[in-house]
Design a protein around this nucleic acid. Structure first.
Length: 264
DNA sequence: AACACGACCTGGTAGC
DNA sequence: TGCTACCAGGTCGTGT
């Protein structure tokens, strides 16, 4: 589920219903500590923000409740916190009776709380530019690529280069840009890095539309808004462009899918 | 500095 | 049916 587009969709949906509400209490079962609950209880939710794959609930008193969904987490509002049928790892009780649930079967998600400045500092130290933000320019991306010998796939997944790409969209970005996942980025020509940049933006814009449509629930779902995976999880299937079989290779301990014909 | 790898967790599924 | 092995959208700590 959660790469940047999905996390953004989670934030938008949450923002609509929780901003302005007070946190009356928090029950922590896993994925957080009781200290986190104490730090956030009694505060108002003033804003819901996202940075990379991180979710930031800005609370009154200069405190941020920070969540990372990792592999399988989800964060969503429910109308009545007493009836959380979902397997909650953290249950946030809001004034008026509604709630927010952190759900995660694998319990790898993490929620913590700290002063705004501390969280902001951490985000800015760890994360590169927002891929759909104004400061993610071709020039900046080219400058970064020139300095790195990382294989293209790992370069894209490194959150300090660009914030928000994960295993699926990194593979899709490389396919659309025609770049081989093992290609060291400093050995790509500047036009090819520019193409990679364009591909990042296009893939994430499309995936975001798709994620937002999916999260707004059934009824408002149109097939042209569904993001099409061209290589991810398609090992052995023919490439949609050149018909050669999609390959799967290990990279950084994960699976990378690519087309040996289209990606060089 | 750059990389590989296991750990963190649970659940689903392919294969025998 | 039941077992095993492997796989999973992410990150962190450790070791080479």
């Amino acid at each position: 589920m959660p790469e940047m587009p999905e996390v953004e969709a989670v934030c938008r949906k949450l923002r609509d219903v929780v901003v302005g509400l007070r946190i009356e209490g928090i029950q922590v079962f896993r994925c957080a500590t009781d200290a986190v609950a104490e730090a956030a209880a009694g505060r108002d939710i003033q804003a819901v923000e996202r940075r990379g794959k991180h979710i930031l609930l800005r609370l009154s008193g200069g405190v941020t409740l920070h969540t990372h969904l990792r592999m399988s987490g989800n964060l969503f509002a429910i109308p009545d916190w007493r009836f959380h049928l979902a397997e909650a790892r953290v249950l946030i009780q809001l004034r008026g009776g509604s709630g927010i649930v952190l759900e995660d079967g694998r319990a790898l998600a993490r929620m913590d709380a700290a002063a705004d400045e501390k969280i902001n500092k951490r985000m800015n130290e760890e994360l590169g530019p927002e891929p759909l933000g104004a400061d993610f320019t071709v020039t900046r991306f080219q400058a970064m690529a020139k300095l790195s010998r990382q294989p293209a796939k790992l370069f894209l997944m490194d959150q300090s280069n660009v914030a928000g790409l994960g295993n699926i969209y990194a593979a899709e970005v490389l396919f659309r840009a025609g770049v081989h996942p093992r290609k060291p980025v400093n050995r790509l020509s500047m036009p090819r890095v520019a193409r990679l940049h364009g591909s990042i933006v296009r893939v994430l814009e499309d995936a975001l539309k798709s994620a937002v449509a999916a999260y707004s629930g059934p009824g408002s779902f149109h097939s042209e808004e569904t993001f099409e995976m061209r290589v991810y999880d398609r090992e052995g299937e023919p490439c949609t462009i050149c018909e050669r079989r999609i390959r799967r290779i290990p990279q950084g301990g994960r699976s990378t899918y690519y087309c040996p014909g289209c990606q060089r």
